[in-house]
Amino acid sequence: MMNRRLFLQKACGGVLLLAASPSLISCDRQQHPVRFGIVTDLHYSRREPYGTRYFPQTMDKLKEAIKVFNQSNLDFVIELGDLKDQDNVPQREQTITYLDEIEKEFQTFQGPVYHVLGNHDMDSISKDDFLQHTSNHGDADKKTYYSFTFNGLKFIVLDANHNLDGAPYDKGNFDWTKAFIPKEQVMWLQGELKEKNKPIIIFIHQLLDRFSDIGKELCVSNADDIVPLLEENGNVLAVFQGHHHAGHYSFRNNIHYWTMKGMIEGNLPDNNSFAVVEIDPQNNIHIDGFYNCEDKDLNRNL
Rank of each mutant, 00 (worst) to 15 (best):
N3Q: 14
R5S: 13
L6N: 12
L6E: 14
C12Y: 14
L18Q: 14
A19N: 12
A19T: 09
P22M: 04
P22Q: 04
S23E: 15
S23H: 15
L24P: 09
I25M: 08
S26L: 10
C27H: 12
D28A: 13
Q30W: 07
V39R: 00
V39H: 01
D41C: 00
R47E: 13
R47N: 13
Y50P: 00
T52W: 07
P56D: 03
Q57V: 01
D60T: 14
D60L: 15
L62V: 08
E64A: 12
A65V: 01
F69K: 10
Q71D: 10
I78Y: 02
G81S: 09
D85Q: 09
V89F: 12
P90I: 04
I96Y: 10
T97E: 07
E103H: 11
E105A: 06
F106A: 06
T108N: 15
G111P: 00
L117Q: 08
K127A: 11
K127W: 07
D129K: 05
T134A: 02
G138N: 07
G138D: 08
K142D: 02
K143P: 04
F148D: 05
L153N: 06
K154Y: 04
I156N: 14
D159Y: 06
A167D: 08
G172V: 01
N173P: 00
F174A: 03
P182T: 11
Q185C: 07
Q185K: 11
K194E: 10
K194F: 00
K198L: 15
I200M: 10
F203H: 02
I204F: 01
H205L: 01
L208F: 15
F211T: 02
D213M: 08
L218F: 14
L218G: 00
D225S: 12
D225L: 14
I226P: 05
V227M: 02
P228S: 07
E232V: 03
N233Q: 08
G234L: 01
V236E: 12
L237V: 04
A246C: 12
S250V: 09
F251D: 04
R252Y: 01
N254Q: 14
I255H: 03
W258Q: 15
L268Y: 05
D270R: 13
N272F: 01
V276E: 10
E278P: 04
E278S: 14
D280H: 11
Q282G: 12
N284I: 07
H286V: 14
I287R: 05
C293Y: 13
L298W: 06
L298G: 08
N299W: 12
